[in-house]
Amino acid sequence: MPSRNTNTRQTLITAAAFILMEVAALVMIYHNAELQRAWFSRGIQSFNATVWGAVEEAGGYFSLRRDNARLAEENLYLTRQVEQLTARLNAQDAPEADGEWTYLPARIVKHQYRGQHNFYLLDKGSGDGVRLGSGVLTARGVVGIIDAVSEHYSYVRSFYNDGMTVSARVDSLGVVAPLVWDGASRGGARLKDIPHHINIPEGSVIRTSSFSGIFPPDVPLGLSGASDKAMDGTQTLSVTLFEEPASLRYVRIVSHRHRDEMEELAHE
């Protein structure tokens, strides 16, 4: 009596022979009959379309993770491109006071803006032409002042520091006063030493003044809020700054072309 393995082998051989003979018959028909050839071709094309369509669909499903990773990389790359181009565009659009100011775009590589002593580290240094005491800003406000420079990096003392002062001006009135961080909130500042008699409406735009050798004039800083009158005949105005320090990625380093000459003259 034949074993089970022998039967299975015989069945497989028979099935293979059957398929082989039928395929041979189909090939013969294909090569000898025009009508049947056209019919077979249609069938084969339809089969291929169905099979490959299914294979493509399944392949597409299983490669979703890889595609997502690739898209995420592309997205990151494009986002960086957009940010870089925006930074360049902003640098071009920034106010240039009679060509006296030079701008250098930079990227923030490290920052701290949680404590009382906040700073940024930029990817541009003395090798790129950065000088100590240069201003750092964006189109939405002042960021800080270069406090230390190495060949490839710069250390920026943030505006959000005690003792940091920026010369500001109330846009509608032309009143100039020092702007300082309020020491408590992000985006909060105070415009100090404004004469008592000047009434500044809330919502007035505060800009940099033209009396600074660090920042160019008319850079928008924020909007005025309530005023607080002091006993010494001055008032302090609360200011809501435009720039949000946590979202900063790109900045511009700004310096006056003739700063050395101005400082030399001032010392004399």
Partner: peptide, 15 residues
């Protein structure tokens, strides 16, 4: 006739 047509039809019968 069409060469292969009888083959195609008869092999399944034999199978």
């Amino acid at each position: 006739g069409i060469i292969g047509l009888n083959v195609l039809a008869l092999v399944p019968v034999a199978w």
